[in-house]
Structures are given as structure tokens and as C-alpha cells.
Simulated assay, not measured.
Amino acid sequence: MSDTITRIDSGPRMSQAVVHGGVAYLAGQVGAEGGTVTEQTQAVLEKVDALLAKVGSDKTKLLTAQIWVANIATDFADMNAVWDAWVAPRHAPARWTGEAKLATTGYKVEIIVTAAV
């Protein structure tokens, strides 16, 4: 196993992705504030696709997905509809979903994934 650590799109506070030991760890991704849960989820998954491409991976190599929604009672079904259309058939990761107060009231969904590289 390599001791190399690669950081993608690093800033002073965080990196958008870190790769180590054949695993890519993506930071939590959010869409633009406002908009519907559907729109935000689509935007988040586009960001996930782009980051996975930067690290040499893709959604068929997802290991885990952690999803936070602002209101599970009203947002869960719409988020799942987008997720289900996006996730690669027969390549669904281990996944969990919870309700959380996100960084601002305009965010309705945040997704964090790990993937093999």
C-alpha cells in the first residue's frame, strides 16, 4: 500500500478530495443555495462525478455514501428519486441518510462519498 497522499482542490480549510491507499475520500458536496431538493441533488451529483473523474474513479467504484437532508420528512423522496436515477446499476454503495441542520438554511442536501481508485 502506498503512503502517498494526494489532495485535490485544496484550500486553507479543506480539500475537495483526498486519495490514499487506493481510496478517494470526497468532502461533503452541496448544490447552490435555494432551489428544490431535486435541483440541489442533481447539482451535488454532478460535482461528485467531476471530483471522481479528477481522482481517476467513477460512480461504479463507490464504496460508501453519506447523505444529509435538511428535512427528512419532506426531502427524502425527492432526493432518492434523483439518487436512484444516478447510481450505477449493480454498483450501489453502502449508504446511510440522516437529517441535519446544514451550513445554511438554503442548503437542502449534502452528499459525502468514498470510492475506490
Score class of each variant (00 low, 15 high):
residue 2 S to Q: 10
residue 2 S to D: 12
residue 3 D to V: 12
residue 4 T to G: 03
residue 5 I to E: 04
residue 8 I to T: 13
residue 8 I to N: 00
residue 9 D to P: 05
residue 9 D to C: 06
residue 9 D to L: 13
residue 10 S to K: 13
residue 10 S to H: 10
residue 10 S to N: 06
residue 11 G to S: 14
residue 12 P to M: 07
residue 12 P to G: 13
residue 13 R to N: 13
residue 14 M to V: 13
residue 14 M to I: 13
residue 18 V to E: 02
residue 19 V to T: 08
residue 20 H to A: 13
residue 21 G to W: 06
residue 21 G to S: 09
residue 21 G to K: 06
residue 21 G to Y: 00
residue 24 A to W: 05
residue 24 A to D: 00
residue 24 A to V: 08
residue 25 Y to K: 04
residue 25 Y to G: 03
residue 26 L to T: 01
residue 27 A to Q: 02
residue 28 G to E: 01
residue 29 Q to G: 08
residue 30 V to N: 03
residue 32 A to H: 13
residue 35 G to V: 13
residue 35 G to S: 03
residue 35 G to W: 01
residue 35 G to I: 12
residue 37 V to C: 02
residue 39 E to F: 04
residue 39 E to Y: 03
residue 40 Q to D: 04
residue 41 T to D: 02
residue 43 A to K: 11
residue 44 V to L: 05
residue 47 K to M: 14
residue 47 K to A: 14
residue 48 V to I: 15
residue 49 D to F: 03
residue 49 D to Q: 07
residue 49 D to Y: 05
residue 49 D to I: 02
residue 53 A to N: 08
residue 53 A to F: 09
residue 53 A to E: 09
residue 53 A to I: 08
residue 53 A to L: 09
residue 54 K to W: 07
residue 55 V to I: 06
residue 56 G to H: 05
residue 58 D to V: 08
residue 58 D to K: 00
residue 58 D to F: 04
residue 59 K to W: 05
residue 59 K to F: 05
residue 60 T to I: 10
residue 64 T to E: 03
residue 64 T to I: 14
residue 65 A to R: 08
residue 65 A to H: 02
residue 65 A to P: 02
residue 65 A to V: 07
residue 66 Q to P: 06
residue 67 I to F: 03
residue 70 A to Y: 05
residue 75 D to A: 05
residue 75 D to L: 12
residue 75 D to Q: 06
residue 76 F to E: 12
residue 77 A to K: 15
residue 77 A to M: 07
residue 79 M to T: 11
residue 79 M to I: 08
residue 80 N to C: 09
residue 81 A to S: 10
residue 82 V to D: 01
residue 83 W to K: 01
residue 83 W to I: 15
residue 84 D to N: 15
residue 89 P to Q: 06
residue 90 R to S: 15
residue 90 R to M: 14
residue 90 R to K: 15
residue 92 A to R: 11
residue 92 A to S: 09
residue 93 P to V: 00
residue 96 W to I: 12
residue 96 W to A: 08
residue 97 T to G: 05
residue 97 T to W: 08
residue 99 E to N: 02
residue 100 A to G: 01
residue 101 K to G: 07
residue 101 K to M: 11
residue 103 A to Y: 13
residue 104 T to N: 03
residue 105 T to C: 06
residue 107 Y to I: 14
residue 107 Y to D: 04
residue 107 Y to E: 06
residue 107 Y to W: 15
residue 108 K to P: 01
residue 109 V to H: 00
residue 110 E to Y: 00
residue 111 I to P: 00
residue 111 I to F: 00
residue 112 I to W: 06
residue 113 V to H: 03
residue 113 V to W: 07
residue 113 V to T: 14
residue 114 T to H: 00
residue 115 A to V: 01
residue 115 A to I: 07
residue 116 A to V: 11
residue 116 A to C: 07
residue 117 V to C: 10
residue 117 V to K: 08
